[in-house]
Design a protein around this nucleic acid. Structure first.
Lengths: 243, 243
DNA sequence: CAGTGGTCTAGACCACATC
DNA sequence: ATGTGGTCTAGACCACTGG
């Protein structure tokens, strides 16, 4: 029954919160099916229709994926078609889809600067891990990323293991470290290539590059990654749909 | 009752198509309320719940806006909060929201080149209107747009009228010319400023600029605008959310 | 075949806005 | 008080998947 009160929240949103909490606590793993609507309905003591609305809301936020006839599954970065597409917006100009390959440049431990600390909600000087990598499309270096992660959350990350892993970086974080990337904010600018990026991306210093700054969030809107990408847009672009 | 057939389409989607057609034919004007769910249900001979699903689908595509207790309204570019925000992703770095001001540079008639013709689904050489304008944030030129429109659809467009109009360009198109912008695709690159853009944007030639190429669609996925923007990203950025 | 999500209905009631 | 969209329920049936 609905809770009538000044801070009214519909029942299906309360159910949504409960299921979301179960997801966060790992009751079902990424890729696994969650219980059927009927089971959840009896578990929470509401009708199937109410559970349906709750799950639809979760599906709208890409926390779960519905598949008719099969069930509802915890979203994962592991099996997304061609292992990409939810967060990577860089495309070839022509249209032919090419799977980029990631090449890890280096990895080191560092302390959070004041800006990184602010966006990751850390104390300045907190330990972080900094990864650098290059994405190559058809052998051509296109994107240079510098990725900053809070060290405690990503304990156990090693260059060797990441190098050996087949699959996307977010897939690795999810399956090996238990950190799930759910949502991200990006800010784009145009900047000239510095000497270091120019060398890695095989362009002249000063070449205009697309700078993509990303903050990625996990459950509870907690920021867990900062990423700065520099992209050569000679034969590639950043695609965006405005609905 | 549902139509059982090999090309099955649920009833609510059929209703959605009917309402969409009514919107396109202008049965209700932008900003106006459409009939209540009950009225539409009797009109189409289905239950209120089915109409609800149809309208929810339209609302998800931003064709209509639902307002509890008031009704469902045809989406409009005229009253969107602060007259912007659905398509303009350029923001000040700081965060203080500043309303940009549009300054029309020139307007001329031309013939579609091969590329423009392709994206606007016209024949090469078809008549188009080309607008150029600068967007200023707090008096500072930030974005230079070159906007190409199919001439027949935008008959009656004049520089004087556009100059005099208070409100966004899409609001003008919608209220004065009956062309509604519903959806857009954007492609972003980083490019060096040419001399002309550099002068208008008050930067040095060669300065990296964010190039935003947009194709905008109206009902039926028909492209009706091509736009190329060049943006100074010294104190501004392009904001994007990845869900 | 049984089980899943998806659709459709009818009715009751709630929250919000307006008069 | 009335009318709007929003929630909740219960039940029936449909479409899809897999054994």
């Amino acid at each position: 029954m609905p809770t009538t009160s000044p801070t009214f929240q519909p029942l299906y949103l309360q159910i949504k919160t409960l299921v979301e909490a179960a997801l966060e606590r790992g009751e079902w793993r990424p890729g696994e099916a969650i219980p059927s609507e009927m089971l959840l309905a009896t578990r929470f003591g509401v009708s199937q229709g109410t559970v349906r609305k709750a799950i639809n809301a979760l599906a709208a936020g890409n926390l779960v994926v519905r598949r008719q006839g099969k069930g509802t599954f915890v979203a994962t970065h592991t099996e997304e078609k061609a292992s990409n597409f939810r967060f990577l917006r860089i495309r070839r100009d022509g249209g032919e889809e090419v799977h980029p390959v990631s090449r890890l440049v280096d990895m080191r431990r560092a302390k959070a600067g004041i800006e990184i600390a602010r966006v990751l909600d850390l104390k300045p000087g907190a330990p972080v891990i900094v990864l650098r990598r290059v994405l190559e499309y058809a052998g051509e270096p296109v994107l240079f990323d510098e990725i900053t992660l809070p060290a405690p959350l990503f304990r156990g990350l090693s260059k060797a293991k990441l190098d050996a892993y087949r699959g996307s970086m977010y897939s690795y974080f999810e399956t090996q470290l238990g950190v799930r990337m759910l949502r991200a904010q990006e800010r784009l600018k145009a900047v000239p290539a510095d000497r270091y990026a120019a060398a890695l991306l095989e362009v002249e210093p000063g070449t205009p590059l697309l700078a993509v700054e990303r903050v990625t969030f996990t459950y509870g809107e907690r920021p867990v990654e900062h990423r700065r990408g520099l992209c050569v847009t000679r034969r590639h672009h950043y695609a965006n749909d405005l609905g």
